[in-house]
């Protein structure tokens, strides 16, 4: 029944494949076309400019600073998110009084809308806001968080991590619960300490999940827009203007769709390259790959 079976296979994947082609691949093609053009938003004139927008990107004096901020922000978010997500999962991967409550607490920001979440943090991070109020109570004079480059970057990274780490925690929890208990018993009988067990047994066994969460987190970090827009507007200066925010400004605030599309495609290239690198590296560090 090989041929008929193959036909069934195509039939089964058809909705998903068509969906991706229509709602992802084709629009990306259109974006490429837009990037080769210059639009006048008021008159609707579209002029072909070839590589003009790409040339502009190379000469854009703000872009290096934007790329730097993007690297710092995304790197910070990914590392913190994975480490904290894993740490929380390990701490909560046992049944003790309140463990269910704590899981819920750490997960709760995930269900809060980004807008509401950042809005509240905007209040808390004010110079005279709640965070500095709490710090003052323990005798620390908190900085004016959103008004200097480094602290603003810390603030947007932190709020992004806190909001999204719950998903990773749950994914890691799921992975940890899939680790057979006998393996721990065996390792302990061999005299391994808990640190050794974690690095030699647990981590390799959950590495496929680590790969998945790493990819999802990187894509998410490169796309975090609302936090930046609400908390810092990319400032002070350009210190927290990450690429996605810059794309929005160019395309939708300054009406430069062509240049915005060019930068968006650049973002897509980054995501793709990072993913391919991870995918290639997976053979090295992912424990069992089929």
């Amino acid at each position: 029944m090989g041929r008929a079976d193959a036909a069934t296979g195509y039939l089964f994947i058809a909705p998903q494949l068509l969906g991706v082609l229509v709602f992802v691949v084709f629009p990306v093609g259109l974006a490429v076309w837009y990037s080769l053009n210059e639009w006048n938003i008021f008159t609707g004139d579209m002029a072909f400019v070839g590589a003009g927008n790409y040339q502009a990107a190379l000469e854009d004096p703000q872009l290096p600073s934007v790329l730097g901020a993007t690297a710092v922000f995304s790197g910070g978010v990914v590392v913190l998110n994975l480490v904290l997500g894993l740490a929380l999962a390990v701490m909560l991967n046992r049944r003790f009084r309140g463990s269910v409550l704590f899981r819920t607490l750490f997960f709760s920001p995930v269900v809060v809308s980004v807008v509401a979440w950042t809005l509240v943090w905007g209040f808390l991070l004010q110079d005279n806001g709640g965070l500095n109020g709490a710090l003052a109570a323990v005798g620390v004079d908190g900085p004016n968080w959103l008004q200097s480059g480094p602290t603003a970057m810390i603030a947007v990274t932190f709020t992004q991590v806190v909001r999204s780490v719950g998903i990773n925690m749950v994914l890691f929890l799921a992975a940890l619960q899939g680790v057979p208990g006998e393996l721990y018993e065996a390792a302990r009988l061999d005299g391994a300490g808990s640190r050794t067990i974690f690095f030699r047994v647990t981590l390799p066994l959950i590495s496929p999940t680590l790969l998945l969460t790493a990819i999802i987190t990187i894509v998410g970090a490169l796309q975090s827009f609302a936090q930046i827009a609400v908390l810092t507007e990319g400032g002070p200066g350009l210190s927290t203007t990450v690429l996605v925010y810059y794309v929005f400004q160019q395309a939708f605030s300054f009406n430069d769709i062509g240049y915005g599309s060019t930068l968006a495609l650049m973002l897509l290239t980054f995501v793709m390259v990072l993913t391919v690198i991870q995918w290639q590296l997976r053979r090295k560090w992912v424990f069992y790959e089929d």
């Binding site: 639009w39 006048n40 938003i41 008159t43 609707g44 004139d45 579209m46 807008v115 950042t118 809005l119 905007g122 827009f225 609302a226 827009a229 609400v230 908390l231 507007e233 925010y245 929005f248 400004q249 395309a251 939708f252 605030s253 009406n255 430069d256 769709i257 915005g260």
Partner: peptide, 25 residues
């Protein structure tokens, strides 16, 4: 504070239509 977010996000819609407008007037 969130006004910029809204401005930018809603601004999305802004540029998106330009091709269709060629036949204005």
């Amino acid at each position: 504070m969130p006004t910029t977010a809204k401005k930018l996000v809603s601004a999305l819609a802004l540029g998106t239509l330009a091709t269709a407008a060629g036949c204005g007037g």
